[in-house]
């Protein structure tokens, strides 16, 4: 059992799922900002990603250097099976909890 996910951990994991092969710092940040309107700093995102990696929920590898990045390599992230399990469990719980709220509490 990988333990519960923090809120930012959920967002980052979802961003990784949405981004697929193109998930690294800049795109993760942009995706979260685009979907939630929340400007998270790189520091926060990296700290979260490191925590997820420590928990065994994501893994990472280094890509190729590009001139736009001052010749530095990208660190790509990908959700591991354990991460998918945790994310599913979370989404499942969320769905169960929101089911039936509809008339008085419309959820889009």
């Amino acid at each position: 059992m990988p333990g519960r996910l923090g809120e930012l951990e959920q967002l980052v994991l979802l961003a990784l799922v949405r981004l697929g092969d193109d998930a690294y710092g800049v795109t993760v940040r942009r995706e979260i900002a685009r979907c939630t309107g929340r400007p998270a700093s790189f520091g926060t995102i990296y700290a979260t990603l490191a925590r997820l990696e420590d928990k065994g929920l994501v893994d990472s590898w280094l890509g190729d250097p590009t001139p736009l990045r001052g010749g530095r390599r990208k660190k790509y992230f990908r959700v591991r099976p354990a991460g998918k399990v945790a994310l599913r469990a979370y989404l499942q719980a969320l769905r169960t909890m929101t089911r039936g709220l509809a008339p008085s509490w419309p959820v889009p």
């Binding site: 690294y24 710092g25 800049v26 940040r29 490191a50 990045r69 530095r72 390599r73 990208k74």
Partner: peptide, 16 residues
């Protein structure tokens, strides 16, 4: 372990 990609991301963001 994050020095290089972090700085790379920051530079990319800077250009944006």
């Amino acid at each position: 372990n994050v020095r290089e990609p972090f700085l790379g991301d920051l530079e990319e963001g800077f250009h944006d």
